[in-house]
Each structure stands twice: as structure tokens, then as C-alpha cells.
Simulated assay, not measured.
Amino acid sequence: MWHSPVVINSGIKGLLRQAYPTIAFQAAGLKSFTPPVDYSGIELPEKPKLMFLEKVPTYAANLKPPKMAKRLRFIRGPEMIHNEFIHKQYGIVALCGGRLNSGHIEMIRMTINRKMDATKMFAIWRIDPPWQPLTRKGQGKRMGGGKGAIDHYVTPIKAGRVIVEVGGKCEFVQVSNFLTEVAEKLPFKAKATSYELIEAEKIQEKELEVSNMNPYTTEYVIRNNMGGCHQWISPFDKKWFFKYV
């Protein structure tokens, strides 16, 4: 016997929805997680914290501390030696030239030693103690009378110099906060970075250089003296092509 279909009005449909809400079923699926970093090859040194650097260099008892000119060549141009990470982990790199005095060095030491976990991390210096003397004459003293007395000592820094290096059984996220805090307090531009980020920047720079379709690059313009630029640019610009100032 055939029955006609039952027509349900909208009011009954609403009651059914309230009585029997939508049921969500959980289904198990395959997930791929990044494997943890292997720190088995990393050994922490006996003294993981930054050591104190002397504010004044030590001279012989019969030697008068020598004076020196400013010698801006110590802070101009790129760093050719200490521009790579030894432990290939993390650190602070200078972006331009400048000088570090004993106050800056002590700030770096105290901040990093206080905020890093010495049970899992270690830090090493990549700079020398202050060695270059800077002279200064007394307040209100007249001109002349020879070179002034030594006021303090500094450490000259070039662009690309690794200032301090941090490593251990940790990731960059764990050290980036206090490294960035230190880098922002330095008297010149610096950044907290890692070995992987530096390598990626080098690859990106090479790709941009290869993909550049403009033949009139800065190097081409300066080498060919276009527009007579050799008359007004600096001798350092002829060497580094406006890359370092």
C-alpha cells in the first residue's frame, strides 16, 4: 500500500534542530611534527658566562702609556676576519663602524650573564678589551700646549664584526630577547642574529645581484666615472661603492 509523503512545516524543523543539535565526530589523522634539534654534539664550557674585560691595558712599570691619533681607518670599511660565528649559533653583529668603551662592554656582560640560563647556554667575547687611547683636554683650557691627557680607552669596531657569541642547548627564540636588548643599547647599529639568518641573507644578496636587470649599478657608475662623480665622491666610496660610510 502506497503512502503519501509527510510534509513537515518550518516550526517542527526548528524544534528538531533544538532537540538534536549537530554532532561533531573526531577523526584521527596523520600529523608530521618537526623533529627536535639534536644537541648531543654541544658541550658547555667550564665557565659559561662572559668574563670581565679590563678597562685599561696593562703596560710595563717603566713605560709611559702611549698616546694615539683617532685613526678612523680602524672603524671604516668591512670586517675581514671576525665576521663569522665560530660555534655557528647566535650572536650580535655590528652593522656599521663605531667604538665601544668600558661602560658598553660592562653593560653587555652584565645583561647577558643575568638573563641567560647558564645550565644550558654559554657566551664568549669576540672583541678585544679596550686598547685604543682617546685623549681629552680639561674643561675651559686654552688651545695649544700639546696633546691632551688620555681620558679613556676604546675598542674600535668595523661593520660586520661579531661582538659577542651565544650558544648551547637552546634555540634562537630563547636568546633573541636579551640579545636584541643589548644590540639596541650599543652606540652604533647592531642586530641579534643567527648563523642560519646570516647565510640566508648572503644567498638573497647573491640572488638579487644576479637577477638585477639594470646594468647601471653603483659599482659600474663609479668605475666608469659617469657624470664626473670622481670629483665629488670620497676615496672610500671609490673603494666600497657607497656600501660603508
Rank of each mutant, 00 (worst) to 15 (best):
M121F: 10
I12E: 08
Q26I: 12
A27N: 12
K158L: 00
A94P: 01
L53F: 04
M116R: 09
M121C: 15
S32A: 11
Y195E: 11
G140D: 08
M1W: 11
P78K: 04
E54Q: 13
K70C: 06
I150K: 02
V166S: 05
K141Q: 13
N212K: 10
S40N: 12
A69M: 07
A19Q: 14
F242P: 01
K13S: 15
I198K: 06
M143Y: 13
Q132V: 10
F33V: 08
G98F: 02
Y59S: 08
I81S: 10
G146M: 12
K239P: 04
V175G: 03
I150L: 00
V182R: 06
F241N: 06
G103T: 15
D117W: 06
Q231A: 11
I23W: 06
K88M: 01
P5E: 13
S102E: 15
T155E: 09
T22D: 10
A183I: 01
M107H: 03
P35S: 02
G140T: 09
K191A: 04
V221T: 01
Q132T: 09
G138F: 14
K64D: 11
H82N: 14
I112L: 03
N214W: 02
Q132E: 06
A149F: 07
A118L: 09
T135E: 15
R71P: 03
E199K: 14
G145W: 11
F122P: 02
A69N: 07
K239V: 10
N113L: 09
K49H: 07
V6E: 11
T217Y: 04
V93L: 13
M68P: 01
V37W: 03
A149K: 13
K191M: 11
G146D: 06
E205I: 11
N212W: 01
L50I: 00
Y153I: 01
A183Y: 01
S234T: 10
M226I: 00
K206L: 10
F122S: 07
M51G: 14
I157K: 02
P5I: 05
F85S: 03
R136A: 15
P187N: 04
T58Y: 14
I12K: 12
E209A: 12
Y59K: 02
N225E: 02
Y195W: 12
W131S: 11
N224G: 00
P45K: 08
F236T: 15
G145R: 07
T135W: 13
E196A: 12
I203H: 10
D117Q: 12
Q89K: 09
I198S: 06
A69L: 12
M68Y: 09
F52Y: 15
I92D: 02
L50D: 02
W240L: 13
A27M: 14
I81M: 05
G41P: 08
K120H: 08
I198W: 05
M80A: 14
S40Q: 11
K189M: 11
F85A: 08
G91K: 07
S32Q: 15
M110P: 05
H87M: 05
E201I: 11
I86L: 09
S194Q: 04
H104I: 07
I75S: 04
R17Q: 13
P156R: 05
L208K: 15
S211Q: 09
C96R: 07
P187I: 03
K189Y: 03
L100F: 04
